[in-house]
Design a binder for these strands. Structure first.
Lengths: 264, 264
DNA sequence: GTCTATAAAAAGATAGAC
DNA sequence: GTCTATCTTTTTATAGAC
Protein backbone atom coordinates (compact mmCIF):
# COMPACT_ATOMS: atom_id res chain seq x y z
CA UNK A 1 0.00 0.00 0.00
CA UNK A 2 2.27 2.71 -1.21
CA UNK A 3 0.41 5.94 -1.74
CA UNK A 4 -1.96 5.62 1.14
CA UNK A 5 0.23 7.25 3.73
CA UNK A 6 -1.40 10.64 3.69
CA UNK A 7 -0.32 13.11 6.25
CA UNK A 8 -2.88 14.47 8.60
CA UNK A 9 -2.63 17.92 7.14
CA UNK A 10 -3.41 16.71 3.67
CA UNK A 11 -6.40 14.78 4.85
CA UNK A 12 -7.72 17.78 6.66
CA UNK A 13 -7.35 19.72 3.50
CA UNK A 14 -9.56 17.24 1.77
CA UNK A 15 -12.07 17.20 4.55
CA UNK A 16 -12.62 20.89 4.49
CA UNK A 17 -13.02 20.41 0.79
CA UNK A 18 -12.26 23.97 0.01
CA UNK A 19 -8.63 23.08 -0.37
CA UNK A 20 -6.56 25.98 0.74
CA UNK A 21 -4.76 25.59 -2.56
CA UNK A 22 -1.35 27.02 -1.96
CA UNK A 23 -0.53 30.04 -4.07
CA UNK A 24 -3.31 30.15 -6.60
CA UNK A 25 -1.76 28.09 -9.32
CA UNK A 26 -5.26 27.38 -10.55
CA UNK A 27 -7.95 30.03 -10.47
CA UNK A 28 -10.57 28.12 -8.56
CA UNK A 29 -11.64 24.61 -7.87
CA UNK A 30 -15.07 25.56 -8.87
CA UNK A 31 -15.15 26.83 -12.38
CA UNK A 32 -17.77 24.66 -13.95
CA UNK A 33 -19.80 25.52 -16.98
CA UNK A 34 -22.47 26.59 -14.57
CA UNK A 35 -24.14 29.95 -15.12
CA UNK A 36 -22.18 31.42 -12.28
CA UNK A 37 -21.33 35.02 -12.90
CA UNK A 38 -17.73 34.97 -14.04
CA UNK A 39 -17.43 38.34 -12.45
CA UNK A 40 -17.32 37.30 -8.84
CA UNK A 41 -15.43 39.75 -6.76
CA UNK A 42 -13.02 38.78 -4.05
CA UNK A 43 -15.76 38.83 -1.49
CA UNK A 44 -18.11 36.90 -3.72
CA UNK A 45 -15.51 34.24 -4.26
CA UNK A 46 -15.14 33.88 -0.52
CA UNK A 47 -18.85 33.52 -0.12
CA UNK A 48 -18.97 30.88 -2.81
CA UNK A 49 -16.27 28.90 -1.09
CA UNK A 50 -18.16 29.20 2.17
CA UNK A 51 -21.26 27.72 0.62
CA UNK A 52 -19.31 24.93 -1.05
CA UNK A 53 -17.56 24.08 2.17
CA UNK A 54 -20.75 24.10 4.19
CA UNK A 55 -22.52 21.98 1.61
CA UNK A 56 -19.80 19.36 1.49
CA UNK A 57 -19.76 19.11 5.24
CA UNK A 58 -23.50 18.58 5.32
CA UNK A 59 -23.37 16.07 2.48
CA UNK A 60 -20.75 14.14 4.41
CA UNK A 61 -22.74 14.25 7.60
CA UNK A 62 -26.12 13.25 6.39
CA UNK A 63 -25.87 12.46 2.71
CA UNK A 64 -26.93 14.23 -0.42
CA UNK A 65 -30.68 13.91 -0.13
CA UNK A 66 -31.02 14.76 3.52
CA UNK A 67 -29.06 17.97 3.20
CA UNK A 68 -31.43 20.63 1.93
CA UNK A 69 -30.51 23.89 0.32
CA UNK A 70 -32.03 25.59 3.33
CA UNK A 71 -29.69 23.69 5.62
CA UNK A 72 -26.74 24.53 3.43
CA UNK A 73 -27.58 28.20 3.33
CA UNK A 74 -28.10 28.35 7.06
CA UNK A 75 -24.88 26.49 7.73
CA UNK A 76 -23.05 28.91 5.47
CA UNK A 77 -24.60 31.78 7.40
CA UNK A 78 -26.79 33.21 4.70
CA UNK A 79 -30.21 33.05 3.18
CA UNK A 80 -31.60 30.48 0.81
CA UNK A 81 -31.84 32.93 -2.04
CA UNK A 82 -28.25 34.02 -1.58
CA UNK A 83 -26.94 30.51 -1.97
CA UNK A 84 -28.90 30.11 -5.18
CA UNK A 85 -27.13 33.17 -6.43
CA UNK A 86 -23.87 31.23 -6.35
CA UNK A 87 -25.05 27.75 -7.22
CA UNK A 88 -27.95 27.40 -9.62
CA UNK A 89 -28.85 24.02 -8.17
CA UNK A 90 -27.93 21.53 -5.56
CA UNK A 91 -26.36 19.32 -8.17
CA UNK A 92 -24.09 22.09 -9.37
CA UNK A 93 -22.45 21.92 -5.97
CA UNK A 94 -21.71 18.28 -6.57
CA UNK A 95 -20.33 19.16 -9.96
CA UNK A 96 -18.05 21.70 -8.35
CA UNK A 97 -16.88 19.04 -5.94
CA UNK A 98 -16.14 16.69 -8.78
CA UNK A 99 -14.09 19.35 -10.52
CA UNK A 100 -12.13 19.74 -7.34
CA UNK A 101 -11.52 16.00 -7.10
CA UNK A 102 -10.15 15.83 -10.64
CA UNK A 103 -7.89 18.78 -10.13
CA UNK A 104 -6.61 17.42 -6.84
CA UNK A 105 -6.05 13.98 -8.34
CA UNK A 106 -3.99 15.42 -11.15
CA UNK A 107 -1.89 17.48 -8.79
CA UNK A 108 -1.23 14.66 -6.37
CA UNK A 109 -0.34 12.10 -9.00
CA UNK A 110 2.03 14.50 -10.70
CA UNK A 111 3.62 15.26 -7.38
CA UNK A 112 4.08 11.65 -6.27
CA UNK A 113 4.51 9.67 -9.44
CA UNK A 114 8.27 10.14 -9.49
CA UNK A 115 8.58 8.12 -6.29
CA UNK A 116 7.33 5.02 -8.07
CA UNK A 117 9.88 2.54 -9.35
CA UNK A 118 7.72 0.43 -11.64
CA UNK A 119 4.35 0.14 -13.27
CA UNK A 120 2.72 -1.50 -10.29
CA UNK A 121 3.70 1.35 -8.01
CA UNK A 122 2.65 3.99 -10.51
CA UNK A 123 -0.76 2.41 -10.77
CA UNK A 124 -0.90 2.18 -7.01
CA UNK A 125 -0.32 5.91 -6.72
CA UNK A 126 -2.91 6.71 -9.36
CA UNK A 127 -5.62 4.61 -7.74
CA UNK A 128 -4.85 5.10 -4.08
CA UNK A 129 -4.58 8.88 -4.27
CA UNK A 130 -8.00 8.94 -5.88
CA UNK A 131 -9.44 6.96 -2.97
CA UNK A 132 -7.53 9.14 -0.54
CA UNK A 133 -9.19 12.22 -1.92
CA UNK A 134 -12.70 10.86 -1.70
CA UNK A 135 -12.11 8.83 1.44
CA UNK A 136 -14.60 10.76 3.54
CA UNK A 137 -17.15 11.43 0.87
CA UNK A 138 -18.92 8.16 0.39
CA UNK A 139 -22.29 9.64 1.23
CA UNK A 140 -21.68 12.44 -1.20
CA UNK A 141 -20.52 10.17 -3.98
CA UNK A 142 -23.94 8.60 -4.05
CA UNK A 143 -25.06 11.66 -5.91
CA UNK A 144 -22.43 11.08 -8.55
CA UNK A 145 -23.70 7.62 -9.32
CA UNK A 146 -27.29 8.68 -9.22
CA UNK A 147 -27.46 9.90 -12.77
CA UNK A 148 -24.97 7.50 -14.29
CA UNK A 149 -27.67 5.69 -16.19
CA UNK A 150 -29.38 8.81 -17.42
CA UNK A 151 -27.71 9.89 -20.64
CA UNK A 152 -29.55 13.19 -20.75
CA UNK A 153 -28.71 14.35 -17.30
CA UNK A 154 -25.95 16.92 -16.90
CA UNK A 155 -24.23 14.79 -14.29
CA UNK A 156 -24.30 11.51 -16.20
CA UNK A 157 -20.83 9.98 -16.40
CA UNK A 158 -21.40 9.21 -20.04
CA UNK A 159 -22.97 12.45 -21.09
CA UNK A 160 -21.23 15.28 -22.90
CA UNK A 161 -21.48 17.52 -19.87
CA UNK A 162 -18.97 15.41 -17.98
CA UNK A 163 -16.74 14.51 -20.91
CA UNK A 164 -14.15 17.02 -19.80
CA UNK A 165 -13.90 15.46 -16.36
CA UNK A 166 -13.76 12.00 -17.88
CA UNK A 167 -10.95 12.92 -20.21
CA UNK A 168 -9.03 14.60 -17.43
CA UNK A 169 -9.35 11.47 -15.37
CA UNK A 170 -8.19 9.24 -18.20
CA UNK A 171 -5.27 11.58 -18.80
CA UNK A 172 -4.17 11.02 -15.23
CA UNK A 173 -4.17 7.27 -15.74
CA UNK A 174 -2.34 7.69 -19.04
CA UNK A 175 0.24 9.73 -17.18
CA UNK A 176 0.58 6.98 -14.60
CA UNK A 177 1.28 4.47 -17.36
CA UNK A 178 4.28 6.58 -18.28
CA UNK A 179 6.52 5.21 -21.00
CA UNK A 180 5.71 1.64 -20.13
CA UNK A 181 6.40 -0.58 -23.11
CA UNK A 182 3.05 -1.86 -24.31
CA UNK A 183 1.49 -2.98 -27.56
CA UNK A 184 0.06 -0.03 -29.39
CA UNK A 185 -3.56 -1.07 -29.07
CA UNK A 186 -3.17 -1.89 -25.41
CA UNK A 187 -1.67 1.48 -24.74
CA UNK A 188 -4.43 3.14 -26.69
CA UNK A 189 -7.23 1.63 -24.65
CA UNK A 190 -5.49 1.27 -21.32
CA UNK A 191 -6.55 4.68 -19.95
CA UNK A 192 -10.17 3.90 -20.75
CA UNK A 193 -9.91 0.48 -19.15
CA UNK A 194 -8.25 1.91 -16.06
CA UNK A 195 -10.86 4.63 -15.82
CA UNK A 196 -13.63 2.03 -16.02
CA UNK A 197 -11.90 -0.08 -13.40
CA UNK A 198 -11.57 2.90 -11.12
CA UNK A 199 -15.26 3.68 -11.51
CA UNK A 200 -16.11 0.14 -10.53
CA UNK A 201 -13.82 0.36 -7.54
CA UNK A 202 -15.44 3.59 -6.46
CA UNK A 203 -18.81 1.89 -6.66
CA UNK A 204 -17.49 -0.84 -4.41
CA UNK A 205 -15.88 1.77 -2.19
CA UNK A 206 -19.13 3.63 -1.70
CA UNK A 207 -20.79 0.43 -0.59
CA UNK A 208 -17.89 -0.68 1.58
CA UNK A 209 -18.77 -0.48 5.25
CA UNK A 210 -15.50 -1.96 6.51
CA UNK A 211 -13.35 0.14 8.77
CA UNK A 212 -12.00 3.02 6.73
CA UNK A 213 -12.91 1.00 3.67
CA UNK A 214 -9.88 -1.21 4.05
CA UNK A 215 -11.66 -3.88 2.09
CA UNK A 216 -11.63 -1.65 -0.94
CA UNK A 217 -7.93 -0.98 -0.44
CA UNK A 218 -7.18 -4.68 -0.32
CA UNK A 219 -9.33 -5.36 -3.34
CA UNK A 220 -7.59 -2.55 -5.15
CA UNK A 221 -4.11 -3.81 -4.34
CA UNK A 222 -4.98 -7.32 -5.39
CA UNK A 223 -6.59 -6.09 -8.55
CA UNK A 224 -3.59 -3.97 -9.45
CA UNK A 225 -1.31 -6.96 -8.96
CA UNK A 226 -3.41 -8.80 -11.49
CA UNK A 227 -3.57 -5.84 -13.82
CA UNK A 228 0.19 -5.52 -13.76
CA UNK A 229 0.53 -9.20 -14.46
CA UNK A 230 -1.92 -8.80 -17.32
CA UNK A 231 0.21 -6.03 -18.79
CA UNK A 232 3.21 -8.33 -18.52
CA UNK A 233 1.38 -11.14 -20.26
CA UNK A 234 0.24 -8.72 -22.92
CA UNK A 235 3.84 -8.22 -23.91
CA UNK A 236 5.12 -11.77 -23.46
CA UNK A 237 6.37 -12.90 -26.89
CA UNK A 238 5.31 -16.53 -26.51
CA UNK A 239 1.70 -15.56 -25.97
CA UNK A 240 1.42 -13.22 -28.89
CA UNK A 241 0.06 -15.83 -31.31
CA UNK A 242 -2.87 -16.27 -28.95
CA UNK A 243 -3.25 -12.72 -27.74
CA UNK A 244 -2.78 -10.66 -30.86
CA UNK A 245 -6.01 -11.72 -32.57
CA UNK A 246 -7.87 -11.25 -29.30
CA UNK A 247 -6.48 -7.75 -28.88
CA UNK A 248 -7.42 -6.99 -32.44
CA UNK A 249 -10.97 -8.14 -31.84
CA UNK A 250 -11.25 -6.14 -28.64
CA UNK A 251 -10.02 -3.06 -30.43
CA UNK A 252 -12.59 -3.51 -33.17
CA UNK A 253 -15.33 -4.02 -30.63
CA UNK A 254 -14.52 -0.97 -28.56
CA UNK A 255 -14.09 1.20 -31.61
CA UNK A 256 -17.36 0.06 -33.10
CA UNK A 257 -19.01 0.71 -29.75
CA UNK A 258 -17.85 4.30 -29.91
CA UNK A 259 -15.68 3.86 -26.85
CA UNK A 260 -12.41 4.77 -28.53
CA UNK A 261 -10.81 7.84 -26.97
CA UNK A 262 -10.70 11.06 -28.98
CA UNK A 263 -13.39 9.99 -31.40
CA UNK A 264 -13.22 11.49 -34.86
CA UNK B 1 -38.49 -10.60 8.53
CA UNK B 2 -40.52 -13.16 6.69
CA UNK B 3 -42.45 -11.69 3.84
CA UNK B 4 -44.75 -14.64 3.51
CA UNK B 5 -46.14 -14.69 7.01
CA UNK B 6 -47.58 -11.26 6.87
CA UNK B 7 -51.03 -10.63 8.20
CA UNK B 8 -53.34 -8.32 6.48
CA UNK B 9 -53.11 -5.71 9.16
CA UNK B 10 -49.36 -5.65 8.90
CA UNK B 11 -49.43 -5.24 5.17
CA UNK B 12 -51.88 -2.42 5.43
CA UNK B 13 -49.73 -0.75 8.01
CA UNK B 14 -46.73 -0.98 5.79
CA UNK B 15 -48.53 0.26 2.77
CA UNK B 16 -50.01 3.25 4.47
CA UNK B 17 -46.62 3.86 5.97
CA UNK B 18 -47.97 4.56 9.42
CA UNK B 19 -46.05 1.92 11.28
CA UNK B 20 -42.99 2.38 9.17
CA UNK B 21 -41.85 5.64 10.56
CA UNK B 22 -42.71 4.68 14.10
CA UNK B 23 -40.52 1.61 13.85
CA UNK B 24 -37.77 3.53 12.17
CA UNK B 25 -36.74 0.53 10.13
CA UNK B 26 -37.44 -0.05 6.49
CA UNK B 27 -40.35 -2.46 6.38
CA UNK B 28 -41.28 -1.16 2.97
CA UNK B 29 -38.65 -3.57 1.74
CA UNK B 30 -41.15 -6.35 2.10
CA UNK B 31 -42.86 -4.81 -0.84
CA UNK B 32 -39.88 -5.82 -2.92
CA UNK B 33 -39.81 -9.29 -1.49
CA UNK B 34 -43.47 -9.95 -1.98
CA UNK B 35 -44.30 -7.99 -5.08
CA UNK B 36 -47.95 -8.92 -5.07
CA UNK B 37 -49.64 -8.51 -1.71
CA UNK B 38 -51.39 -11.74 -0.97
CA UNK B 39 -54.32 -9.82 0.40
CA UNK B 40 -55.42 -8.44 -2.94
CA UNK B 41 -58.55 -9.92 -4.35
CA UNK B 42 -59.10 -10.72 -7.98
CA UNK B 43 -60.37 -7.25 -8.68
CA UNK B 44 -57.62 -5.67 -6.67
CA UNK B 45 -55.05 -7.61 -8.64
CA UNK B 46 -56.54 -6.28 -11.85
CA UNK B 47 -56.37 -2.77 -10.53
CA UNK B 48 -52.78 -3.25 -9.52
CA UNK B 49 -51.90 -4.45 -12.98
CA UNK B 50 -53.67 -1.46 -14.45
CA UNK B 51 -51.60 0.90 -12.38
CA UNK B 52 -48.41 -0.95 -13.19
CA UNK B 53 -49.22 -0.94 -16.88
CA UNK B 54 -50.12 2.74 -16.92
CA UNK B 55 -46.99 3.60 -14.98
CA UNK B 56 -44.72 1.69 -17.32
CA UNK B 57 -46.28 3.37 -20.32
CA UNK B 58 -45.71 6.77 -18.81
CA UNK B 59 -42.17 5.92 -17.76
CA UNK B 60 -41.48 4.83 -21.31
CA UNK B 61 -43.00 7.96 -22.77
CA UNK B 62 -41.46 10.62 -20.65
CA UNK B 63 -39.03 8.96 -18.27
CA UNK B 64 -39.10 8.18 -14.60
CA UNK B 65 -38.83 11.68 -13.19
CA UNK B 66 -41.32 13.38 -15.44
CA UNK B 67 -44.07 10.90 -14.69
CA UNK B 68 -45.72 11.82 -11.42
CA UNK B 69 -47.89 9.61 -9.29
CA UNK B 70 -50.79 11.85 -10.19
CA UNK B 71 -50.19 11.24 -13.87
CA UNK B 72 -49.95 7.54 -13.31
CA UNK B 73 -53.14 7.39 -11.31
CA UNK B 74 -54.98 9.47 -13.85
CA UNK B 75 -53.70 7.36 -16.71
CA UNK B 76 -54.83 4.26 -14.85
CA UNK B 77 -58.25 5.83 -14.46
CA UNK B 78 -58.26 6.31 -10.73
CA UNK B 79 -57.32 8.66 -7.97
CA UNK B 80 -53.98 9.34 -6.44
CA UNK B 81 -54.96 7.78 -3.16
CA UNK B 82 -56.08 4.61 -4.87
CA UNK B 83 -52.73 4.12 -6.53
CA UNK B 84 -50.98 4.67 -3.23
CA UNK B 85 -53.13 1.90 -1.86
CA UNK B 86 -51.43 -0.51 -4.25
CA UNK B 87 -47.96 0.97 -4.46
CA UNK B 88 -46.52 2.70 -1.42
CA UNK B 89 -44.15 4.73 -3.57
CA UNK B 90 -43.17 5.44 -7.10
CA UNK B 91 -40.06 3.36 -6.68
CA UNK B 92 -42.03 0.33 -5.62
CA UNK B 93 -43.53 0.33 -9.09
CA UNK B 94 -40.06 0.11 -10.54
CA UNK B 95 -39.35 -2.73 -8.19
CA UNK B 96 -42.46 -4.53 -9.42
CA UNK B 97 -41.28 -4.01 -12.95
CA UNK B 98 -37.93 -5.49 -12.10
CA UNK B 99 -39.61 -8.51 -10.56
CA UNK B 100 -41.49 -8.94 -13.79
CA UNK B 101 -38.31 -8.70 -15.82
CA UNK B 102 -36.64 -11.39 -13.75
CA UNK B 103 -39.59 -13.71 -13.99
CA UNK B 104 -39.90 -13.18 -17.72
CA UNK B 105 -36.20 -13.69 -18.21
CA UNK B 106 -36.28 -16.97 -16.38
CA UNK B 107 -39.26 -18.20 -18.35
CA UNK B 108 -37.87 -17.22 -21.71
CA UNK B 109 -34.44 -18.68 -21.11
CA UNK B 110 -35.90 -21.95 -19.88
CA UNK B 111 -38.12 -22.06 -22.92
CA UNK B 112 -35.44 -21.33 -25.50
CA UNK B 113 -32.27 -22.73 -24.02
CA UNK B 114 -32.82 -26.16 -25.55
CA UNK B 115 -32.46 -24.71 -29.03
CA UNK B 116 -28.85 -23.82 -28.32
CA UNK B 117 -26.18 -26.21 -29.51
CA UNK B 118 -23.18 -24.88 -27.59
CA UNK B 119 -22.06 -22.53 -24.87
CA UNK B 120 -21.88 -19.54 -27.15
CA UNK B 121 -25.47 -19.97 -28.20
CA UNK B 122 -26.67 -20.55 -24.66
CA UNK B 123 -25.01 -17.34 -23.53
CA UNK B 124 -26.49 -15.58 -26.53
CA UNK B 125 -29.96 -16.63 -25.47
CA UNK B 126 -29.40 -15.60 -21.87
CA UNK B 127 -28.17 -12.13 -22.77
CA UNK B 128 -30.27 -11.34 -25.80
CA UNK B 129 -33.56 -12.33 -24.19
CA UNK B 130 -32.76 -9.99 -21.35
CA UNK B 131 -32.26 -7.13 -23.77
CA UNK B 132 -35.39 -8.18 -25.65
CA UNK B 133 -37.43 -7.83 -22.51
CA UNK B 134 -36.17 -4.38 -21.64
CA UNK B 135 -35.84 -3.19 -25.23
CA UNK B 136 -38.41 -0.43 -24.90
CA UNK B 137 -37.67 0.56 -21.35
CA UNK B 138 -34.48 2.52 -21.54
CA UNK B 139 -36.02 5.59 -19.98
CA UNK B 140 -37.42 3.50 -17.20
CA UNK B 141 -34.18 1.69 -16.53
CA UNK B 142 -32.63 4.97 -15.50
CA UNK B 143 -34.45 4.53 -12.24
CA UNK B 144 -32.75 1.20 -11.69
CA UNK B 145 -29.32 2.73 -11.89
CA UNK B 146 -30.22 5.77 -9.88
CA UNK B 147 -29.68 4.21 -6.51
CA UNK B 148 -26.95 1.78 -7.49
CA UNK B 149 -24.39 3.73 -5.53
CA UNK B 150 -26.52 4.19 -2.46
CA UNK B 151 -26.05 1.18 -0.22
CA UNK B 152 -28.84 2.16 2.11
CA UNK B 153 -31.50 2.63 -0.48
CA UNK B 154 -34.05 -0.15 -0.96
CA UNK B 155 -33.38 -0.20 -4.68
CA UNK B 156 -29.60 -0.33 -4.53
CA UNK B 157 -28.26 -3.19 -6.67
CA UNK B 158 -25.92 -4.15 -3.88
CA UNK B 159 -28.30 -3.82 -1.00
CA UNK B 160 -30.05 -6.66 0.77
CA UNK B 161 -33.41 -5.55 -0.54
CA UNK B 162 -32.51 -6.55 -4.08
CA UNK B 163 -30.50 -9.65 -3.22
CA UNK B 164 -33.36 -11.89 -4.24
CA UNK B 165 -33.53 -10.35 -7.69
CA UNK B 166 -29.77 -10.52 -8.00
CA UNK B 167 -29.67 -14.18 -7.09
CA UNK B 168 -32.50 -15.00 -9.45
CA UNK B 169 -30.64 -13.28 -12.21
CA UNK B 170 -27.42 -15.13 -11.46
CA UNK B 171 -29.35 -18.38 -11.35
CA UNK B 172 -30.51 -17.76 -14.90
CA UNK B 173 -26.94 -17.29 -16.04
CA UNK B 174 -25.89 -20.39 -14.13
CA UNK B 175 -28.63 -22.28 -15.92
CA UNK B 176 -27.38 -20.98 -19.25
CA UNK B 177 -23.92 -22.32 -18.43
CA UNK B 178 -25.51 -25.76 -18.23
CA UNK B 179 -23.13 -28.65 -17.69
CA UNK B 180 -20.31 -26.92 -19.48
CA UNK B 181 -17.00 -28.38 -18.35
CA UNK B 182 -15.20 -25.70 -16.41
CA UNK B 183 -12.68 -25.49 -13.61
CA UNK B 184 -14.43 -25.52 -10.27
CA UNK B 185 -13.50 -21.98 -9.31
CA UNK B 186 -14.43 -20.62 -12.71
CA UNK B 187 -17.80 -22.28 -12.52
CA UNK B 188 -18.30 -20.92 -9.03
CA UNK B 189 -17.77 -17.30 -10.00
CA UNK B 190 -19.03 -17.40 -13.55
CA UNK B 191 -22.65 -16.47 -12.71
CA UNK B 192 -21.46 -13.45 -10.75
CA UNK B 193 -19.16 -12.40 -13.56
CA UNK B 194 -21.89 -12.83 -16.15
CA UNK B 195 -24.31 -10.88 -13.98
CA UNK B 196 -21.81 -8.04 -13.66
CA UNK B 197 -21.17 -8.12 -17.39
CA UNK B 198 -24.87 -7.96 -18.09
CA UNK B 199 -25.26 -4.99 -15.75
CA UNK B 200 -22.52 -3.19 -17.62
CA UNK B 201 -24.15 -3.98 -20.92
CA UNK B 202 -27.45 -2.65 -19.65
CA UNK B 203 -25.71 0.54 -18.65
CA UNK B 204 -24.37 0.83 -22.19
CA UNK B 205 -27.77 -0.12 -23.55
CA UNK B 206 -29.49 2.64 -21.65
CA UNK B 207 -27.10 5.15 -23.12
CA UNK B 208 -27.22 3.70 -26.62
CA UNK B 209 -29.02 6.00 -29.01
CA UNK B 210 -28.40 3.91 -32.10
CA UNK B 211 -31.40 2.59 -33.99
CA UNK B 212 -33.07 -0.01 -31.81
CA UNK B 213 -29.85 -0.14 -29.83
CA UNK B 214 -28.19 -2.27 -32.47
CA UNK B 215 -24.86 -1.06 -31.25
CA UNK B 216 -25.45 -2.77 -27.95
CA UNK B 217 -26.42 -5.97 -29.74
CA UNK B 218 -23.21 -5.91 -31.74
CA UNK B 219 -21.15 -5.16 -28.68
CA UNK B 220 -22.90 -8.00 -26.89
CA UNK B 221 -22.26 -10.53 -29.66
CA UNK B 222 -18.62 -9.58 -29.90
CA UNK B 223 -18.23 -9.72 -26.16
CA UNK B 224 -19.83 -13.14 -25.95
CA UNK B 225 -17.47 -14.42 -28.63
CA UNK B 226 -14.62 -13.31 -26.44
CA UNK B 227 -16.19 -14.69 -23.29
CA UNK B 228 -16.64 -18.06 -24.93
CA UNK B 229 -13.06 -18.00 -26.08
CA UNK B 230 -12.03 -17.11 -22.55
CA UNK B 231 -13.90 -20.12 -21.21
CA UNK B 232 -12.09 -22.26 -23.76
CA UNK B 233 -8.75 -20.87 -22.72
CA UNK B 234 -9.64 -21.40 -19.10
CA UNK B 235 -9.77 -25.13 -19.77
CA UNK B 236 -6.86 -25.45 -22.17
CA UNK B 237 -4.33 -27.78 -20.51
CA UNK B 238 -1.24 -26.04 -21.85
CA UNK B 239 -2.24 -22.76 -20.23
CA UNK B 240 -2.98 -24.13 -16.80
CA UNK B 241 0.50 -23.46 -15.40
CA UNK B 242 -0.09 -19.80 -16.13
CA UNK B 243 -3.77 -19.60 -15.40
CA UNK B 244 -4.18 -21.68 -12.28
CA UNK B 245 -2.34 -19.32 -9.93
CA UNK B 246 -4.19 -16.40 -11.45
CA UNK B 247 -7.55 -18.07 -10.94
CA UNK B 248 -6.55 -18.86 -7.39
CA UNK B 249 -5.66 -15.25 -6.76
CA UNK B 250 -8.89 -14.00 -8.30
CA UNK B 251 -10.88 -16.40 -6.14
CA UNK B 252 -9.12 -15.18 -3.02
CA UNK B 253 -9.72 -11.57 -3.97
CA UNK B 254 -13.40 -11.96 -4.68
CA UNK B 255 -13.94 -14.02 -1.56
CA UNK B 256 -12.12 -11.52 0.61
CA UNK B 257 -14.16 -8.77 -1.01
CA UNK B 258 -17.32 -10.52 0.09
CA UNK B 259 -18.42 -11.07 -3.47
CA UNK B 260 -18.61 -14.82 -3.27
CA UNK B 261 -22.11 -16.15 -3.90
CA UNK B 262 -24.06 -17.61 -0.99
CA UNK B 263 -21.93 -15.95 1.63
CA UNK B 264 -21.64 -17.63 4.99
C1' DG C 1 -62.92 -3.74 1.48
C1' DT C 2 -62.23 -0.43 -1.80
C1' DC C 3 -61.84 4.01 -3.19
C1' DT C 4 -62.41 9.59 -3.31
C1' DA C 5 -61.04 13.90 -1.97
C1' DT C 6 -58.12 16.73 0.22
C1' DA C 7 -54.87 18.64 3.34
C1' DA C 8 -50.32 19.33 5.15
C1' DA C 9 -45.53 19.43 4.74
C1' DA C 10 -41.14 19.43 2.45
C1' DA C 11 -37.97 20.96 -0.70
C1' DG C 12 -36.24 22.91 -4.99
C1' DA C 13 -36.35 27.10 -7.21
C1' DT C 14 -37.41 32.16 -8.34
C1' DA C 15 -38.87 37.25 -8.07
C1' DG C 16 -38.05 41.46 -6.72
C1' DA C 17 -36.88 44.85 -3.01
C1' DC C 18 -32.95 47.04 -1.11
C1' DG D 1 -24.89 40.63 -3.19
C1' DT D 2 -28.11 39.57 0.01
C1' DC D 3 -32.49 39.24 1.74
C1' DT D 4 -37.64 38.16 2.32
C1' DA D 5 -41.48 36.31 0.48
C1' DT D 6 -43.52 33.31 -2.58
C1' DC D 7 -44.30 29.67 -6.16
C1' DT D 8 -44.48 25.04 -7.70
C1' DT D 9 -44.21 20.32 -7.48
C1' DT D 10 -44.41 16.14 -5.10
C1' DT D 11 -45.15 13.04 -1.40
C1' DT D 12 -47.21 11.51 2.78
C1' DA D 13 -51.08 10.89 5.33
C1' DT D 14 -56.02 10.70 6.59
C1' DA D 15 -60.99 11.33 6.98
C1' DG D 16 -64.73 9.34 5.44
C1' DA D 17 -68.08 7.81 1.41
C1' DC D 18 -69.92 3.60 -0.68
Amino acid sequence: MSATSRTKAEVTEVQTGVAVQAAGSQPSLVEHESPVPATLGKKGEMTRQQILSAALNLFRERGFDAATMRDIAESAGMSLGASYYYFPSKESIVSAYYDYVQQEHKVRVEREISKAKNLRQRLGIAFHTKLDIIQNDRRLLVALFRYGGDPHHPLSWFGPATSRQRELSMAVFAHALGDQKLPKDVRYFAPLALWALHMGLILYFVNDSSDEQRRTRRLLDGTLDLVTRAFDLATAPVLQPILRPIRKRVTELLTDAGLAPNPG
